[in-house]
Write a protein that binds this DNA or RNA. Structure first.
Lengths: 240, 240
DNA sequence: CCAAAAGTGTTGAGTATACACCCATGA
DNA sequence: TCATGGGTGTATACTCAACACTTTTGG
């Protein structure tokens, strides 16, 4: 009932059992889990790893793990991605923290969810080192996920959709150089709806963030002008 | 006594005395900190408590504390508010998690920041039990804050401003019954800019969430119609 | 009857949407 | 020359912002 009494008791027990070392009260641990997206072949894909240990062994989940003392949450997320998929350069953004004690039946772990974006070239270089398997799934065809990771996935996709509308976040899903058609296809893929080409071009141009590059992409038909984002740091834009 | 806390203790002690070399690696702890807002006398105010222990003793901070094994983050935030300010009924929304190891020089604590809203009547009932002092400060006149709490405050105020524009979140800062002038003053206070009364009324009415109540508020001058929110659960609105 | 707050419409500017045809190239 | 994807402009509907006077009450 009285919290002060509980704290006091905990301190006493700690002192008795600790002797030289002060025993800490058990507390929930902190983990990070990253929902990593990439566009490949006009499909939105998501990186999953197959768990090897614990009650959820064999199930698929987002790469992540416990945070260490002395590192920031972002650092922990990047470290886990490097370990799990050999990924280095990518965009990371914190989403939300999930603290339901029952989300992991094994232990009380608070998970800080992250949204990660990488371009197709970076995604291709991914390879699982830490897990039994790691591969890219189409978001519409993901297997059942461990823990509450399907909830985290929902958050991530919603955030991505929403930020496409009012930021330049798309630059993190594209190669440094791209055509307008590629940019439009990215938007259509993520937002799951077709876009009017002329209106889309006008909106994007109004942002003033694209710079036109000298060359052309030559393909089977009329060559397309090349573009790049002027700034790759995310910034808010008045669009939508 | 708190069952969860006791169980946790027993688990900890037996693990220690059992001789099993499962010594846990030190991990960051998880805390919650709530930026609690209320409107009083046309001013936006924020509840702070004065810390009694640790390196930051004497400094002001948002009410919060460590999360316990077995409780959700929301539950932890509500428990701390009940302990710190005897507050029960209020709106809570998770903001962001702050994990910089140096944010608390004493230990690595990851803090999950919360935005809390309460109406003036609820705010008036607040009284600090756990801390040396607890009181409401105008947001423009807050003292220097402990840890990184001024960063959390920025997040909270920005989130509140933003959600006023596209949700019915305002209902949590008002009494169940209010006049249109009170609602408008709330918006003007939080957003720090004057609003056009006619445009504002049109926008709010377009939301379709207010219901007009039969009575009138009688004052020194022309009586004002009374309103209430139809739903107090937060929902997204097309406004702005 | 006067002071003070409550209540009410219209207009103009800018923005978003819908829509169809010509262009440049490789095969 | 034709098939294919690249590239462009306009007309309309709608939304947002600016703006001032009348109404109702208490004192």
């Amino acid at each position: 009932l009285d919290d002060v009494a509980v704290e006091t008791l905990q301190h006493q027990v700690s002192a008795q059992s600790g002797g030289v070392r002060v025993t800490e009260i058990a507390r929930p641990k902190v983990a990070v889990d990253t929902v990593l997206f990439a566009i490949e072949g006009g499909r939105l894909k998501c990186y999953l790893v197959q768990l090897t240990a614990g009650a959820a062994a064999g199930k698929w989940a987002f790469p992540g793990g416990l945070v260490r003392v002395g590192e920031t949450l972002d650092e922990a997320a990047r470290r886990e991605l490097k370990d799990a998929a050999s990924l280095r350069e990518l965009y990371l953004e914190q989403l939300f923290s999930f603290g339901d004690p029952s989300r992991d039946p094994g232990a009380h772990v608070v998970s800080v969810g992250y949204l990660g974006l990488i371009d197709a070239a970076g995604a291709a270089s991914s390879c699982s080192r830490k897990y039994a398997a790691g591969r890219w799934f189409e978001v519409a065809q993901m297997p059942a996920l461990a823990y509450d990771h399907s909830v985290i996935a929902d958050y991530a996709w919603r955030r991505l959709k929403s930020k496409l509308e009012y930021t330049n976040i798309a630059c993190n899903l594209l190669a440094p150089t791209f055509t307008f058609a590629e940019l439009e296809e990215l938007y259509a893929t993520v937002l799951e709806r077709p876009l009017d080409r002329r209106n889309f071009r006008r909106r994007i141009m109004a942002m003033g963030l694209l710079k036109r590059l000298p060359g052309k992409r030559r393909g089977a038909h009329r060559p397309a002008a090349l573009y790049a984002f002027g700034r790759r740091s995310v910034q808010m834009i008045e669009m939508l």
